[in-house]
Amino acid sequence: MTSQKSSPRSPRGTSGSSARRTTPAFRVAAAMVRPAMNVLMGKEWRGLQRLPRGGYIVVANHVSEVDPVAVAHAVYVGGNTPHFMAKDSLFRVPGLGSLLRTLKQIPVARSDRGEARKSLDIAREVLDQGGAILIYPEGTLTRDPELWPMRAKTGAARLALTTGAPLVPITHWGLQDWLPQYSKMPRLLPRKKYTLEVGEEIDLSDLRGKPLTRTLLAEATERIETALTEGVAQLRGEKAPEHIWDRAANQRVPRGQLEARRKADS
Protein backbone atom coordinates (compact mmCIF):
# COMPACT_ATOMS: atom_id res chain seq x y z
CA MET A 1 0.00 0.00 0.00
CA THR A 2 1.48 3.33 -1.04
CA SER A 3 1.42 6.17 1.44
CA GLN A 4 1.40 9.72 0.14
CA LYS A 5 1.07 12.39 2.82
CA SER A 6 1.23 15.27 0.37
CA SER A 7 -1.38 16.04 -2.23
CA PRO A 8 0.09 16.68 -5.67
CA ARG A 9 -0.44 20.18 -6.92
CA SER A 10 -1.58 21.14 -10.35
CA PRO A 11 1.09 21.81 -13.01
CA ARG A 12 2.55 25.26 -12.76
CA GLY A 13 4.80 27.57 -14.67
CA THR A 14 5.75 31.15 -15.28
CA SER A 15 3.62 33.80 -16.94
CA GLY A 16 0.55 31.67 -16.42
CA SER A 17 1.85 28.85 -18.62
CA SER A 18 2.28 25.24 -17.58
CA ALA A 19 5.77 24.18 -16.56
CA ARG A 20 5.11 20.70 -17.85
CA ARG A 21 5.92 21.25 -21.51
CA THR A 22 7.12 17.72 -21.98
CA THR A 23 8.08 16.01 -25.18
CA PRO A 24 6.11 12.94 -26.32
CA ALA A 25 9.15 10.83 -25.37
CA PHE A 26 9.08 12.16 -21.80
CA ARG A 27 5.37 11.47 -21.44
CA VAL A 28 5.85 7.95 -22.74
CA ALA A 29 8.75 7.36 -20.33
CA ALA A 30 6.72 8.69 -17.40
CA ALA A 31 3.76 6.52 -18.34
CA MET A 32 5.97 3.43 -18.20
CA VAL A 33 8.21 4.25 -15.25
CA ARG A 34 5.65 5.55 -12.76
CA PRO A 35 3.45 2.42 -12.67
CA ALA A 36 6.57 0.24 -12.51
CA MET A 37 7.94 2.18 -9.53
CA ASN A 38 4.60 1.89 -7.75
CA VAL A 39 4.54 -1.87 -8.24
CA LEU A 40 8.17 -2.53 -7.34
CA MET A 41 8.40 -0.38 -4.20
CA GLY A 42 6.16 1.10 -1.57
CA LYS A 43 6.68 4.77 -0.85
CA GLU A 44 5.83 7.52 1.56
CA TRP A 45 6.16 11.05 0.25
CA ARG A 46 6.10 14.04 2.55
CA GLY A 47 6.06 17.76 1.88
CA LEU A 48 5.23 17.89 -1.82
CA GLN A 49 3.25 21.04 -1.06
CA ARG A 50 6.59 22.75 -0.39
CA LEU A 51 7.62 22.53 -4.05
CA PRO A 52 7.65 26.12 -5.39
CA ARG A 53 5.65 27.40 -8.32
CA GLY A 54 7.66 28.19 -11.42
CA GLY A 55 11.29 27.24 -11.89
CA TYR A 56 13.34 25.91 -8.99
CA ILE A 57 16.46 23.88 -8.18
CA VAL A 58 16.36 20.59 -6.28
CA VAL A 59 19.35 19.26 -4.36
CA ALA A 60 19.13 15.64 -3.19
CA ASN A 61 21.20 13.07 -1.33
CA HIS A 62 22.58 10.17 -3.38
CA VAL A 63 22.62 6.62 -1.97
CA SER A 64 21.54 4.43 -4.90
CA GLU A 65 21.60 4.52 -8.68
CA VAL A 66 17.80 4.40 -8.65
CA ASP A 67 17.64 7.74 -6.76
CA PRO A 68 17.18 9.88 -9.89
CA VAL A 69 14.06 7.97 -10.89
CA ALA A 70 12.47 8.34 -7.45
CA VAL A 71 13.28 12.05 -7.12
CA ALA A 72 12.14 12.79 -10.67
CA HIS A 73 8.94 10.84 -9.98
CA ALA A 74 8.12 13.05 -6.99
CA VAL A 75 8.92 16.28 -8.87
CA TYR A 76 6.82 15.18 -11.84
CA VAL A 77 3.83 14.24 -9.69
CA GLY A 78 4.31 17.52 -7.84
CA GLY A 79 3.58 19.33 -11.09
CA ASN A 80 6.88 20.06 -12.79
CA THR A 81 9.19 18.63 -15.43
CA PRO A 82 12.49 17.33 -13.99
CA HIS A 83 15.76 18.09 -15.77
CA PHE A 84 18.91 16.52 -14.34
CA MET A 85 22.35 18.06 -14.60
CA ALA A 86 24.31 14.84 -15.07
CA LYS A 87 27.96 14.09 -15.78
CA ASP A 88 28.62 14.06 -19.51
CA SER A 89 30.07 10.53 -19.45
CA LEU A 90 26.52 9.19 -19.04
CA PHE A 91 25.59 10.79 -22.36
CA ARG A 92 28.27 8.70 -24.08
CA VAL A 93 26.78 5.39 -22.95
CA PRO A 94 25.13 3.73 -25.97
CA GLY A 95 21.36 3.94 -25.73
CA LEU A 96 21.36 5.81 -22.42
CA GLY A 97 22.89 8.92 -23.95
CA SER A 98 20.25 9.09 -26.66
CA LEU A 99 17.50 8.62 -24.09
CA LEU A 100 18.86 11.38 -21.85
CA ARG A 101 19.04 13.81 -24.75
CA THR A 102 15.54 12.89 -25.90
CA LEU A 103 14.27 13.59 -22.38
CA LYS A 104 16.02 17.00 -22.41
CA GLN A 105 18.47 16.24 -19.61
CA ILE A 106 21.60 18.43 -19.29
CA PRO A 107 25.16 17.10 -19.71
CA VAL A 108 27.86 18.64 -17.51
CA ALA A 109 31.48 18.50 -18.68
CA ARG A 110 33.48 19.18 -15.52
CA SER A 111 36.85 19.26 -17.28
CA ASP A 112 35.80 21.71 -20.02
CA ARG A 113 34.96 25.21 -18.75
CA GLY A 114 33.35 26.22 -22.03
CA GLU A 115 31.02 23.23 -22.01
CA ALA A 116 30.33 23.74 -18.31
CA ARG A 117 29.21 27.32 -19.00
CA LYS A 118 26.99 26.04 -21.81
CA SER A 119 25.36 23.61 -19.36
CA LEU A 120 24.69 26.46 -16.94
CA ASP A 121 23.16 28.52 -19.75
CA ILE A 122 20.81 25.64 -20.61
CA ALA A 123 19.90 25.27 -16.93
CA ARG A 124 19.06 28.98 -16.72
CA GLU A 125 16.78 28.63 -19.75
CA VAL A 126 14.99 25.69 -18.12
CA LEU A 127 14.46 27.71 -14.93
CA ASP A 128 13.24 30.75 -16.87
CA GLN A 129 10.67 28.51 -18.57
CA GLY A 130 9.41 27.23 -15.21
CA GLY A 131 11.16 23.85 -15.20
CA ALA A 132 12.90 22.09 -12.32
CA ILE A 133 16.65 21.45 -12.28
CA LEU A 134 17.73 18.42 -10.22
CA ILE A 135 21.30 18.35 -8.93
CA TYR A 136 23.27 15.90 -6.80
CA PRO A 137 25.66 18.32 -5.07
CA GLU A 138 27.92 15.48 -3.94
CA GLY A 139 28.62 14.78 -7.62
CA THR A 140 28.36 11.01 -7.23
CA LEU A 141 27.05 8.30 -4.91
CA THR A 142 28.03 9.02 -1.33
CA ARG A 143 31.23 7.33 -0.22
CA ASP A 144 30.33 7.64 3.44
CA PRO A 145 30.45 4.09 4.88
CA GLU A 146 27.08 4.68 6.58
CA LEU A 147 25.56 6.45 3.56
CA TRP A 148 25.32 9.91 5.10
CA PRO A 149 25.57 12.86 2.69
CA MET A 150 29.19 13.75 2.04
CA ARG A 151 30.88 17.06 1.26
CA ALA A 152 29.17 18.85 -1.60
CA LYS A 153 30.56 20.62 -4.63
CA THR A 154 29.70 24.28 -5.27
CA GLY A 155 27.79 23.92 -8.56
CA ALA A 156 24.27 23.92 -7.08
CA ALA A 157 25.07 26.93 -4.90
CA ARG A 158 26.54 28.80 -7.86
CA LEU A 159 23.47 28.14 -10.01
CA ALA A 160 21.07 29.18 -7.25
CA LEU A 161 22.97 32.38 -6.50
CA THR A 162 23.37 33.43 -10.14
CA THR A 163 19.78 32.72 -11.15
CA GLY A 164 17.93 33.63 -7.97
CA ALA A 165 15.88 30.42 -8.30
CA PRO A 166 14.51 28.77 -5.14
CA LEU A 167 16.75 26.00 -3.80
CA VAL A 168 14.83 23.05 -2.38
CA PRO A 169 16.28 19.97 -0.61
CA ILE A 170 14.75 16.55 -1.26
CA THR A 171 15.98 13.73 0.95
CA HIS A 172 15.09 10.06 0.87
CA TRP A 173 15.95 6.83 2.64
CA GLY A 174 15.28 3.19 1.74
CA LEU A 175 16.08 3.16 -1.98
CA GLN A 176 19.45 1.60 -1.17
CA ASP A 177 17.61 -1.44 0.22
CA TRP A 178 16.03 -2.03 -3.21
CA LEU A 179 19.17 -1.33 -5.24
CA PRO A 180 22.36 -1.26 -3.15
CA GLN A 181 25.27 0.84 -4.33
CA TYR A 182 27.00 -0.56 -7.43
CA SER A 183 24.65 -3.52 -7.52
CA LYS A 184 23.34 -4.55 -10.93
CA MET A 185 20.32 -6.44 -9.64
CA PRO A 186 17.57 -5.06 -7.40
CA ARG A 187 16.36 -6.90 -4.32
CA LEU A 188 12.72 -7.42 -5.21
CA LEU A 189 11.61 -9.53 -2.25
CA PRO A 190 10.49 -8.83 0.32
CA ARG A 191 8.95 -5.70 -1.19
CA LYS A 192 10.88 -2.63 -0.10
CA LYS A 193 9.60 0.81 0.89
CA TYR A 194 11.33 4.16 0.78
CA THR A 195 10.50 7.52 2.33
CA LEU A 196 11.04 10.83 0.53
CA GLU A 197 10.61 14.31 1.95
CA VAL A 198 10.67 17.77 0.39
CA GLY A 199 12.31 20.12 2.87
CA GLU A 200 11.92 23.82 3.43
CA GLU A 201 13.58 26.08 0.86
CA ILE A 202 17.24 26.75 1.72
CA ASP A 203 17.54 30.42 2.61
CA LEU A 204 20.22 32.17 0.57
CA SER A 205 18.63 35.62 0.70
CA ASP A 206 21.53 37.19 2.60
CA LEU A 207 24.02 35.86 0.04
CA ARG A 208 22.31 36.88 -3.18
CA GLY A 209 23.52 39.89 -5.14
CA LYS A 210 27.08 39.63 -3.81
CA PRO A 211 30.29 38.72 -5.70
CA LEU A 212 30.67 34.95 -6.04
CA THR A 213 33.81 34.56 -3.96
CA ARG A 214 35.01 31.19 -2.73
CA THR A 215 33.89 32.19 0.75
CA LEU A 216 30.37 33.00 -0.43
CA LEU A 217 30.08 29.74 -2.36
CA ALA A 218 31.46 27.84 0.63
CA GLU A 219 28.79 29.36 2.89
CA ALA A 220 25.97 28.51 0.49
CA THR A 221 27.34 25.01 -0.06
CA GLU A 222 27.57 24.34 3.67
CA ARG A 223 23.89 25.28 3.98
CA ILE A 224 23.12 22.67 1.33
CA GLU A 225 25.17 20.06 3.19
CA THR A 226 23.38 20.90 6.42
CA ALA A 227 19.90 20.73 4.87
CA LEU A 228 20.58 17.34 3.29
CA THR A 229 22.22 15.88 6.38
CA GLU A 230 19.43 17.05 8.67
CA GLY A 231 16.81 15.73 6.27
CA VAL A 232 18.42 12.29 6.10
CA ALA A 233 18.86 12.21 9.88
CA GLN A 234 15.15 12.87 10.33
CA LEU A 235 14.18 10.11 7.90
CA ARG A 236 16.56 7.65 9.54
CA GLY A 237 15.56 8.66 13.05
CA GLU A 238 19.23 8.93 13.94
CA LYS A 239 21.72 11.60 14.89
CA ALA A 240 24.10 12.47 12.05
CA PRO A 241 27.85 12.03 12.58
CA GLU A 242 29.65 15.06 13.95
CA HIS A 243 32.02 15.02 10.97
CA ILE A 244 31.26 14.82 7.25
CA TRP A 245 32.82 12.50 4.69
CA ASP A 246 35.33 14.18 2.38
CA ARG A 247 35.85 12.18 -0.79
CA ALA A 248 39.28 13.70 -1.49
CA ALA A 249 40.54 12.88 2.00
CA ASN A 250 38.74 9.51 2.03
CA GLN A 251 37.63 10.11 5.60
CA ARG A 252 35.30 12.20 7.71
CA VAL A 253 36.48 15.72 8.40
CA PRO A 254 35.11 18.54 10.60
CA ARG A 255 32.02 20.12 9.09
CA GLY A 256 33.13 23.69 9.79
CA GLN A 257 35.50 24.21 6.88
CA LEU A 258 34.28 27.74 6.18
CA GLU A 259 36.83 29.50 8.41
CA ALA A 260 39.72 27.80 6.63
CA ARG A 261 38.25 28.78 3.29
CA ARG A 262 37.86 32.38 4.46
CA LYS A 263 41.57 32.48 5.33
CA ALA A 264 42.47 31.03 1.93
CA ASP A 265 40.25 33.62 0.27
CA SER A 266 41.81 36.58 2.12
Rank of each mutant, 00 (worst) to 15 (best):
S89M: 10
G54N: 04
T226G: 01
R27V: 08
G42I: 02
F91S: 04
L100N: 04
L217M: 08
S98E: 11
P8M: 02
R27H: 04
A72M: 04
A123G: 09
Y56C: 12
D144A: 09
P68M: 07
P145K: 09
I135E: 03
A109L: 11
S17M: 09
E65G: 11
P186F: 01
P82R: 01
L48D: 14
N80L: 11
D128N: 12
L189C: 04
F84H: 04
P166R: 06
V77I: 15
E197A: 13
Q105C: 00
V33T: 14
A240V: 07
E115Y: 08
S205W: 05
V168D: 01
E219K: 15
R187N: 13
L258T: 14
R151P: 02
A116D: 14
E225G: 07
P166T: 02
P166D: 13
L179D: 02
K5D: 12
Q105R: 03
S266W: 05
N80S: 15
E225K: 08
P149C: 00
K239E: 15
P211C: 10
M185D: 01
D67C: 11
T22M: 12
V63G: 03
Q4E: 14
K239Q: 15
L179K: 07
E225F: 00
E259A: 14
W178N: 05
S64Y: 02
V77F: 06
P166E: 09
T102R: 14
L141H: 09
R117M: 12
A60G: 08
G164F: 13
A116R: 12
N250E: 13
E259D: 14
G114T: 12
G79W: 00
P180K: 03
T142P: 09
D112H: 13
R46F: 10
